[in-house]
C-alpha cells in the first residue's frame, strides 16, 4: 500500500512537471508530437528507474564513508551512463525516434527530474523498493504530462493563435493552466 501511495504521489499529487516544475526543458522541447512524446517518456522512465536503483546503492556506500558531498557528481555519472545506453540502443533499433528526439535524447542527462528523484530518494531515506516506485511514478507522471501536452499542442497547430503568442508563449500559458488544474490533487497524499 505504501509503495502504491508513493507511486501515485510522484505521478499525480507531486507531479514533477506541473507541481515541482522540474524537467521543463524536455517537456517543452519534445512535446510537439504525441509519438515522440511517448518515446521520450519511455526513455525517461527507463533511465529514471535504473539510475535510481543504482544510485540508491551508491548513496548507501557514500553515506558509509561520509562522502555525501560527492552525491551530485556520482548520481550524474550514473545517469549519464544510462542515457548513453539508451542512446546507443535507440540509434541501432529505432533510428526514426532517435532522429525525432535529436538533441533532447542526450539531454536526458540534464533532465532535472532524474537527478531530482535520486536526491529525493536519498533525502527521504526510501528503501530500495520505495525508491524504485518513486522513480516509476515520477517517470509515469512525466510521460502523462508530456502526452497531454503533446495532444494539446497538436491541436494548437491548427488554431488561430495570435502571432505574439505562437509556439513557446502559448505553450507556457497552457502549461501554467495545466499546473493550476493539477492543484486539485493537492493534499490527497501527505
Amino acid at each position: 500500500m505504501k509503495l502504491f501511495l508513493i507511486l501515485l504521489s510522484a505521478m499525480l499529487v507531486n507531479n514533477y512537471v506541473f507541481v515541482r516544475f522540474l524537467g521543463i526543458c524536455p517537456f517543452l522541447g519534445v512535446s510537439k508530437k504525441t509519438s515522440t512524446a511517448i518515446g521520450m517518456g519511455l526513455a525517461v522512465i527507463f533511465v529514471l528507474v535504473m539510475s535510481s536503483a543504482i544510485s540508491w546503492g551508491l548513496d548507501k556506500i557514500l553515506i558509509a564513508f561520509g562522502l555525501e558531498f560527492l552525491r551530485t557528481i556520482v548520481f550524474i555519472l550514473v545517469i549519464a551512463t544510462f542515457v548513453q545506453f539508451v542512446e546507443a540502443f535507440l540509434k541501432k533499433n529505432n533510428p526514426n525516434l532517435y532522429e525525432a528526439l535529436g538533441i533532447y535524447l542526450p539531454l536526458i542527462t540534464t533532465n532535472c527530474i532524474i537527478l531530482g528523484v535520486a536526491i529525493v530518494n536519498s533525502l527521504s531515506r526510501y528503501t530500495l523498493f520505495e525508491a524504485i516506485f518513486n522513480a516509476l511514478g515520477a517517470g509515469l507522471g512525466f510521460t502523462l504530462a508530456l502526452i497531454i501536452f503533446a495532444g494539446i499542442r497538436e491541436k494548437l497547430e491548427l488554431y488561430d493563435v495570435p502571432k505574439p503568442f505562437q509556439n513557446l508563449p502559448i505553450s507556457m500559458i497552457t502549461a501554467s493552466i495545466l499546473s493550476l488544474a493539477f492543484m486539485g490533487f493537492q493534499g490527497m497524499i501527505k
Binding site: 494548437l156 488561430d160 493563435v161 495570435p162 503568442f165 508563449p169 502559448i170 500559458i173
Partner: peptide
Amino acid sequence: HAFGGLGQ
C-alpha cells in the same frame, strides 16, 4: 483569445 478565440 490567446488560444485563438471562439471555438479554439
